[in-house]
């Protein structure tokens, strides 16, 4: 399956937005978290600053998000992970409400209640969780609902290679297979689950091979490349829409930053990330587009546009108000 020029441009622009959103967060996150503003003796304080709590960023992992979401509409559902920004952005969630949620502001997706690992959008049919492996069973449910309602909607569930050793992965694959559900299971193999490498945690080299155990197609995308992801996910989405059931896809991808911000990454070989960055998927797509007719001027227009949208989102988040404390006890039930 080949992307159109428009689809290529869309993927390129979305990757730029994601990268900029994540890299901007690296600095914003540190505001207020370093000495001398924090408790004496600490090097860093995770609970201080504008955006407190854990922060898992997806810089480097853009291809899997854009190469998948380019096939989806607002009727299709996504369940994501604790590292969810790239999926959320590619699914079309507004940057403003995304950023505001991370600042804990009332204008955020969940009125500041969820935080960065717990993003929900009813309009964009998006949800995610901080619990490893939690998205897959719910994806089966969303797909079951679409099937019962006679729709050709699909559900994409993203998870890390670490999550492929969680029971919910195996249970969900079997469920999706026996009920012939339109679920696309997409594993992001960024080689690490915090400090544990995939070799240490996983008995086989290719998680897509696990599809054999459930009688469904399994494909591994070997390169961190939006066009390759586009191709493989496109086929799986088409299968899902045609009622041909679930697929399992593993995409090799790269985590440029720490597991969370503040991670010293002592477990990671030196220079690993700088080597990875030399083969950056955004640079590659940019080159491909320039080679096929995008002008330098068009390119800078795209970059200005994406930069402006990210800056606006962070400004919006900063300026927004916190929820009133009376909201703390609301919304346990509807």
């Amino acid at each position: 399956m080949e992307p159109t020029k428009e689809q290529l441009l869309w993927m390129y622009e979305q990757m730029l937005v994601i990268r900029d959103f994540e890299e901007t967060m690296v600095n914003v996150y540190l505001e207020g978290k370093l000495p001398p503003e924090i408790q004496e003796g600490l090097a860093f304080d995770i609970g201080s600053g504008l955006v407190p709590g854990e922060m898992h960023l997806a810089a480097g992992q853009e291809p899997v998000a854009v190469g998948s979401c380019v096939h989806l509409t607002d009727d299709d559902t996504i369940t994501g992970t604790h590292r969810p920004h790239h999926f959320a952005i590619a699914k079309g969630i507004s940057l403003n409400s995304l950023a505001a949620e991370m600042f804990g502001k009332v204008t955020g997706l969940g009125r500041g209640k969820g935080g960065h690992m717990h993003l929900f959008s009813v309009d964009k049919k998006f949800g995610c969780s901080g619990i490893i492996g939690a998205g897959m069973p719910q994806a089966c449910g969303a797909a079951l609902a679409a099937k019962k309602q006679g729709k050709d909607w699909v559900t994409v569930t993203f998870f890390g290679e670490g999550a492929a050793n969680q029971g919910s992965f195996h249970e969900s694959l079997n469920l999706a297979a026996i009920w012939n559900l339109p679920v696309i299971f997409i594993c992001e193999d960024n080689k690490y689950a915090i400090s544990v490498t995939r070799e240490e945690s996983t008995a086989i080299a290719n998680n897509a091979d696990r599809a054999i155990g459930y009688g469904i197609p399994g494909v591994r995308v070997e390169n961190n490349d939006a066009v390759e992801v586009y191709d493989v996910v496109g086929e799986a989405v088409a299968r899902g829409r045609q009622g041909k059931g679930p697929s399992l896809i593993e995409v090799s991808t790269d985590r440029y930053l720490g597991h969370f911000q503040g991670d010293a990454e002592a477990y990671r070989p030196e220079n690993e990330v700088s080597t990875l960055r030399e083969n950056d998927p955004i640079d590659r797509l940019q080159q491909q587009l320039l080679d096929s007719g995008m002008t330098e001027e068009e390119d800078s227009q795209i970059k200005e546009r994406t930069k402006a949208s990210v800056q606006e989102a962070y400004a919006f988040a900063r300026e927004s108000a916190y929820p009133d404390t009376s909201e703390a006890t609301q919304h346990v039930f509807v």
């Binding site: 009125r111 209640k113 969820g114 935080g115 916190y322 929820p323 404390t325 909201e327 703390a328």
Partner: peptide, 16 residues
């Protein structure tokens, strides 16, 4: 904690 999940937003968390 008054029988609510722990909210993310700092002022809410500090309240519960």
């Amino acid at each position: 904690v008054p029988d609510v999940p722990i909210p993310y937003s700092r002022p809410l968390e500090q309240t519960v």
